[in-house]
């Protein structure tokens, strides 16, 4: 169960929302994926081509590149349950018992 996670976080500029999204992501990863995750932050303002290639519309957008399949989460990642669900870090059964 030592799966590597590659997470790309697309933001637009150094806004409070961008910073919040990164902080939330880091906190969740530290708790759930210690030592087996990598986060890349891409600023679409600086790299519009990458935003174009990934067809990013809303920011922040988090894309789980690895493990497959690709998953997308939009928002500042403040809704922890939704992030865990989006990254498939909780099984549906677990999810129900949490609620």
């Amino acid at each position: 169960m030592a799966q590597e996670y590659l997470l790309r976080l697309y933001v637009t500029g150094q806004t409070a929302r961008s910073a919040r999204a990164l902080a939330n992501l880091q906190a969740i990863c530290e708790e759930e994926l210690q030592g087996r995750y990598r986060i890349e932050v891409i600023d679409v303002l600086e790299n519009p081509e990458r935003g174009e290639n990934e067809r990013i519309v809303a920011t922040p957008t988090l894309i789980r590149e690895l493990p497959p399949p690709i998953r997308r989460i939009i928002g500042d990642l403040s809704d922890r349950d939704e992030v865990l669900h989006g990254l498939e870090l909780v099984s549906p059964g677990q999810r129900e018992s949490l609620q």
């Binding site: 929302r17 303002l45 935003g51 809303a58 997308r72 939009i74 928002g75 992030v83 989006g86």
Partner: peptide
Amino acid sequence: EETVEAGSYDLGALVARIEH
């Protein structure tokens, strides 16, 4: 591709892509 929503967002990337 299913998109999950987890918190507040804007369409900043769209604005940037259009400008670009």
